[in-house]
């Protein structure tokens, strides 16, 4: 087909413009991104504005049901067992929830992909050793790790990040290695080697940029996974400890009141679902948008719908 000739000169638009246009082409992804933006804003500014609201106890409002505006807008989602309004609590908890997930994803991605680059590019004994290390980490029970950290160090946000980061390293390690093994054999790498390019330059200038989109896509997906893992730990009581709050912890704290006050667990759980869902949608979009071969699907869809 003669598509190569016709697509040669797409107009040079701003990168951000192209980005938003591609995002708009997938409505689900667009609203997912919008929702995540709101969550991030809540995480950054929520505690500054609302931390007083979120911790103010109101014994008359204990387990107040949702959708009643008599106590004010803050109580729209109801209140918890101490009468603290749920809406501001969820907004404030966004900070810890996001910080843990972001911290863990960034750390594990940097360490994991660095190890993966080494394991994939060098044929030395290191490669095997790194892979075995990955196996050990993968089969090390993350619960035990969490308990160890909980007992040894204090259950602070930073330490939970540490636990989660360690458990996620193998994902990046394996993905990066597999990709590097494939990219290493491509012809433009041979071309660079013929030129006398150093290994370092080949890895950072030629291999990493090609692997990067995959890593970012996985990181987005993994962000959702880490959020779920953090909530599970908090739920089991071996994650973040009160008075700090995360969404997972809120679900766990509402559990004893399930029969008479379902909303204590329901809303924070919904917050988790909506966030992870948005991340999954965004990751699915990224898989297409970052792949030059598949990008046309979005460009076409946009034309048709809009």
């Amino acid at each position: 087909m003669s598509q190569t000739n016709t697509t040669t000169t797409p107009k040079e638009r701003g990168r951000i413009g192209t980005f938003i246009r591609l995002l708009w082409a997938d409505k689900f992804a667009f609203f997912a991104a919008l929702f995540l933006l709101v969550v991030v804003l809540c995480a950054i500014f929520g505690p500054i504005w609302l931390s007083d609201e979120a911790t103010r106890q109101n014994l008359r409002g204990r387990n107040a049901p949702p959708f009643e505006l008599s106590r004010g807008f803050m109580y729209i989602l109801g209140a918890d067992q101490l009468g603290r309004p749920l809406l501001p609590r969820i907004i404030v908890a966004a900070q810890n929830t996001m910080a843990v997930a972001a911290g863990a994803v960034i750390c594990s991605m940097i360490i994991g992909s660095a190890l993966g680059l080494v394991a994939g590019y060098t044929r030395s004994r290191w490669s095997g050793a790194i892979m075995r290390l990955g196996d050990v980490i993968m089969s090390f029970p993350s619960l035990l790790l969490a308990v160890i950290v909980l007992y040894m160090l204090e259950p602070s946000v930073a330490n939970i990040v540490l636990v989660l980061a360690i458990t996620r390293i193998p994902i990046y390690l394996r993905t990066t290695r597999a990709e590097v093994l494939e990219v290493r054999e491509r012809m433009f790498i041979s071309a660079a080697r013929v030129m006398g390019t150093s290994d370092r330059r080949i890895v950072f200038r030629h291999i990493l940029p090609v692997v990067m989109p995959t890593l970012i896509t996985i990181a987005t997906l993994d962000f959702a996974f880490v959020m779920l893992a953090e909530s599970s730990l908090s739920f089991l009581g071996i994650g973040i400890q009160p008075p700090e709050i995360t969404w997972g912890l809120m679900v766990s704290q509402g559990r004893p009141y399930l029969t008479n006050a379902w909303w204590l667990s329901f809303w924070p759980g919904l917050a988790i679902i909506l966030t992870t869902l948005s991340l999954n949608l965004l990751s699915a979009w990224m898989r297409i948008a970052l792949d030059p071969v598949q990008r046309w699907r979005l460009e076409m869809g946009g034309r048709k719908n809009g």
Binding site: M187, F188, S190, V194, M195, G196, P209, V210, P292
Partner: peptide
């Protein structure tokens, strides 16, 4: 390396797409 260079079969693959 400067003196001997190579041109490969498939130019699509021998040029870094990024």
């Amino acid at each position: 390396r400067r003196d001997i260079q190579m041109v490969f079969q498939d130019p699509t693959q021998s040029l870094n797409p990024r």
